[in-house]
């Protein structure tokens, strides 16, 4: 369905190697998707961006061989151990550096470029005013998230189950589908998503990111790799949202980007947002000097 929505690249993976994925795909499924995508002239990025412990790094080499044989277009990597393996194996498998919150400067991105990265996912905590400085120095494309949930914490501990066990209120489920949130003290209006999975416990920003109104600005900055995260989105609605962003891209390229259209598309994104999730522009419009 996303292919028919005309996105350029599909992003997917399995939980053992990738972080916070909407679905964990088996190898046979990855193979099938790569075939479908390539037949449609689209690219596939596979997530290999987990924080790897020994038991996993031992299995990464084989997974990388598998992905290279499939001619996956690129992978995301956040652990230098995986980059070390790529260097040792000399595989033809381009990687995008994605260590989430850590990717905050051009100099850092360029360090990974020297180590073979073909791109980097810029941290959501980098505001527009810093992006303008960053783009002048970037030696490889910076990918920027324009829609979806922002992870703000990853723990190796099962924080929810530990809590349930402590209060002796046994609850089986603390997964993403359970739909748990936390609110900060004295701020009952806040709602940070929280769930557990194979990679630990994850906490997300108060609202999902929606930068549809900023796309022309990003385009002017040369930031044209837009990432949509469908972690909490409903299946069909996420396809709609992808279509809205594709329409936005086409309008910008055709120089038909008008205030009316922006308002219309922004409304459409909102209409497809899950009923229990808000939208905002995250750190994009924040003055860097406000962050202490």
């Amino acid at each position: 369905m996303l292919l028919t929505a005309d996105v350029d690249t599909l992003y997917l993976g399995e939980d053992f190697f990738g972080l916070r994925l909407p679905h964990s795909f088996k190898r046979s499924e990855v193979a099938e998707i790569v075939q479908l995508a390539h037949a449609a002239g689209k690219k596939v990025t596979v997530a290999v961006n987990a924080i790897m412990h020994n038991d996993r790094i031992a299995k990464v080499a084989d997974y990388l061989d598998f992905l290279a044989a499939l001619q996956v277009d690129q992978i995301t990597v956040g652990d230098p151990g995986v980059i070390y393996l790529l260097q040792q194996k000399k595989l033809n498998l381009p990687f995008i550096y994605d260590a989430e919150v850590l990717v905050t400067s051009a100099r850092q991105v360029n360090f990974w470029a020297k180590h073979g990265a073909s791109g980097a996912v810029i941290a959501r905590e980098v505001p527009h005013d810093e992006l303008t400085e960053m783009v002048t120095e970037l030696q490889i494309p910076g990918e920027i998230q324009v829609y979806g949930a922002t992870c703000i914490h990853q723990s190796g501990r099962p924080l929810l189950h530990n809590y349930f066990n402590f209060v002796k209120e046994h609850q089986d489920r603390a997964d993403r589908a359970r739909g748990l949130f936390v609110s900060a003290p004295h701020k009952p209006e806040t709602h940070y998503s929280i769930y557990e999975d194979f990679n630990g416990t994850h906490v997300f920003a108060n609202n999902d990111l929606n930068l549809i109104t900023k796309l022309a600005e990003l385009n002017d900055l040369g930031l044209t790799h837009w990432k949509l995260d469908g972690l909490f989105a409903d299946h069909d609605q996420f396809v709609n949202i992808a279509q809205i962003f594709v329409a936005a891209k086409k309008a910008i390229l055709a120089q038909k980007w008008t205030p009316d259209l922006v308002e219309q598309l922004d409304g459409q994104v909102g209409a497809n947002q899950p009923a229990n999730r808000g939208l905002d522009t995250g750190f994009y419009e924040i003055d860097p000097s406000e962050v202490q």
Partner: peptide, 26 residues
């Protein structure tokens, strides 16, 4: 409590950068 460096609770809840010396221990 989290993987060190991979936590920006403080940035998002307190506008203090956890990875630049501002961690508010949220």
């Amino acid at each position: 409590i989290g993987y060190s460096g991979r936590c920006v609770l403080s940035n998002h809840m307190s506008m203090r950068d956890a990875n630049r010396g501002g961690c508010a221990q949220n």
